[in-house]
Design a protein around this nucleic acid. Structure first.
Lengths: 305, 305
DNA sequence: GCATCCTTGTAGGCTGGCTACATGAATGAC
DNA sequence: GTCATTCATGTAGCCAGCCTACAAGGATGC
C-alpha cells in the first residue's frame, strides 16, 4: 500500500500550482499546456497516490480536497527547496544575474523605482516592470507570475491575504493633505481637522483606502466635508488641487514636490500606508530576486531617512 | 545565462545518487537502468546547467567536481523534503505501514531484534533484515540500500564517516571479560588488569576494535598478555572460553548468559561500544522507518535499564 | 434558454529517455 | 609488456509517456 502511493515531485508541483491558481485552465496557461494535459496529469497523480481524490468538483471548476491541500503544501516546500539550491548554484556561478519580474503600484514605483534601477544598473540583475493598480486582495494572485509585487497596506506592514507569502515592508508613507501654494492653510506647518472641514475636497471613490483619512477628519471635526469629485489618479488630483482652494489626501513621498503644491500633515493623526513587497517563498530564494528586494528596501530606507 | 541554467529535481537526484554510490555503474544498478542511460542523463544535466562540468574523470571512474558536489548536496536536501512530504502523506493515510530494510551487526541483532520484532508485530511495519559484519568505514555505503544500518562505534555515540547521515545511539554496551564458570577469577565481582595478565587470552585479529581493551589491560598491568588465538566470531570464542581457563573480551549484553560462561567487568576500565543506528536523512523521514527506529531505541533503553 | 466558462474524454502524433551493442581508457596481475 | 577487468561513453533504434486537437458535458448567470 505504501509502495503504491509514492509521492512524486512533479505531482506536488502540479498541485501547488493548482492551489495557487485555482483552476485547471489557469494552470495550463501558466505552464504552456492545454487544460486537457493538466487534467490528465491530475488523474495520473491521483492514480499513483492510491486513488484518493485530490480534487473535487466545485461550481464550474474544482477545488482541492484535504488530501490535495496536504500535498500542495508539500509542493510549496519542495519548490522552496529547489529554489534555495538554484540560488546557491547561481551564487556559485558568480552571478546575481537574471530577470526579476516586478509588478508595482504606480505611485510606489514613482518613489522607489528610480533609485532601485540605479542601484541595480551595475549588477547583472534586470528588472521587468509592470505597473498595475493592485487591490490588496489581489496580491496573492499576482505573485504567481511576478517575482516581486509592490503593493500597499493600510492596516499594517503585513497585508491581508498573504498566508503563504513572504512580505517585506519597504516604506511607511504618511498620508498628508495637499494644498495649492498660497492656500490660506499653507502658512501653518500642520493643519487640523477643524481647518479642513471648511474646504471642499477632492476624494477617492467610496471604499478606497485613502478615504479612511477623510472619514477620520470628519469624525474628529464632528461634521462631514463636501467632496467635489471622487477620482482615482493622483496626478490628476494634484493638478486639480494646484488650481483651486480644494484639498485632497495624498501620500507624502509619491507626490511630486513643487509645481505649486504643498503637503501638510493633519495634526494629531498618524495616517499612513505601508508600501510592501510581497513574494512567493520560492521566488524569494533566487539570488537575483533577493538582490532586487534588497535594493527596494535600501531605497525605501533612504526615502524615509 | 540564468535562464539557461535551471536546476532540475531529477538532475539533483541523479547527482546525489552519484555522490552516494560513486560510480555510474552503481547508480545504474540501483535505479534499474543501464550505465549508458545514466551517462546520458549526466550529459544533459551538464548541458542544461550551462555546460559547467559536474564530473571529471578520476581513475577508471569519475568523481564530482565542486559544482557537482554543490548540486549533490542540494539533492540531499531535496530528497529529504520529498521524504518529509511522503511521511505526512502516509500519516494522513493513517498508515505507518511499509517495509523497512535493516542491515545489522549480528551481535547487536541478538540483543535488540527479538524485542523490536515483538513491538512491531502489532503495527503495519515489516522489517527486512540482513546481517552483515560491517566495518565502521562502510556504514555510509550501506545506507544507500538500507533504511536503518545498525553498527557499532568505539569512539563515542557518533561513528566516524557519518557526515551526511542521521545517527541515533541505541545502546552503550560495556565490554567485559568472559570466564568459564568455576574459573579462579569468577569469584571476584570485578577483575583487575593484574589478574588478567596471568591468563592466556582469546583475542581478535590485530586492529579489530575489541583489541583496544586488551591493549589497555597490558598498559595498566605493565606487561603483555599471551594471545592463544585471534578469532572473529563471538559464539566461537564463547565456546572456547567455556572450555578452558583462557579469557576473552566480550560485549556484555550480546553474550548469551549461562551456558557455563560468566562476564566480569575490568576494575577501573570503562570500555564499551556504542550500538548505533545510522540512517540516510531522507529515509529517516519515512513514518515506517521512524517507527522502527523508535522500537530499536526503546528496546535499547530496556536492555540498559 | 442561451452564452460562457470550466473540466474531461478520445485519438493520434512526437519526443525524451531507454536498451543493446560497440569502443576506448585506466588499472592491476602476471 | 600483455591481458583481463572495470569503468565510462557513443550510436542507432525502439517505445512509453505526455502532449495537442477536437468534441462533449456540467454549472452559472444574464
Amino acid at each position: 500500500m505504501n509502495d503504491l502511493s509514492r509521492v512524486d515531485p512533479r505531482h506536488l508541483d502540479l498541485l501547488r500550482e493548482l492551489a495557487d491558481r485555482g483552476t485547471v485552465t489557469a494552470v495550463a496557461q501558466a505552464t504552456h499546456r492545454t487544460p486537457s494535459a493538466v487534467s490528465q496529469q491530475l488523474r495520473t497523480a491521483q492514480r499513483e497516490l492510491g486513488g484518493v481524490p485530490l480534487v473535487e468538483p466545485h461550481g464550474r471548476g474544482l477545488r482541492l480536497t484535504e488530501a490535495g491541500r496536504l500535498l500542495a503544501d508539500g509542493g510549496r516546500e519542495l519548490s522552496r527547496t529547489v529554489a534555495q539550491v538554484q540560488a546557491r548554484w547561481d551564487e556559485f556561478m558568480g552571478s546575481a544575474s537574471g530577470t526579476v519580474r516586478v509588478a508595482t503600484l504606480p505611485s510606489a514605483a514613482t518613489v522607489l523605482l528610480p533609485g532601485v534601477l540605479e542601484r541595480l544598473a551595475s549588477t547583472g540583475v534586470k528588472l521587468e516592470c509592470t505597473d498595475l493598480d493592485i487591490a490588496e486582495s489581489e496580491y496573492s494572485g499576482m505573485v504567481a507570475d511576478h517575482d516581486i509585487v509592490i503593493g500597499h497596506s493600510f492596516t499594517g506592514p503585513v497585508p491581508a491575504g498573504a498566508e503563504h507569502l513572504v512580505t517585506a515592508a519597504l516604506l511607511r508613507e504618511p498620508l498628508d493633505i495637499a494644498l495649492r501654494a498660497g492656500h490660506p492653510l499653507a502658512a501653518k506647518p500642520q493643519v487640523t481637522a477643524r481647518d479642513l472641514v471648511a474646504y471642499e475636497w477632492y476624494g477617492v471613490p467610496l471604499g478606497y483606502p485613502f478615504d479612511g483619512l477623510r472619514i477620520a477628519v470628519e469624525t474628529a471635526a464632528g461634521r462631514p466635508v463636501r467632496v467635489a469629485q471622487r477620482l482615482r489618479d493622483n496626478r490628476l488630483i494634484e493638478a486639480l488641487v494646484a488650481a483651486s482652494d480644494r484639498v485632497a489626501v495624498l501620500p507624502r513621498y509619491s507626490t511630486a514636490p513643487g509645481a505649486g503644491l504643498m503637503l501638510r500633515p493633519v495634526h494629531g493623526m498618524d495616517a499612513a500606508r505601508w508600501i510592501v513587497a510581497i513574494l512567493r517563498p520560492d521566488h524569494a530564494e533566487r539570488l537575483a530576486v533577493r538582490t532586487a528586494l534588497e535594493a527596494f528596501q535600501a531605497v525605501g530606507r533612504e526615502v524615509v531617512g
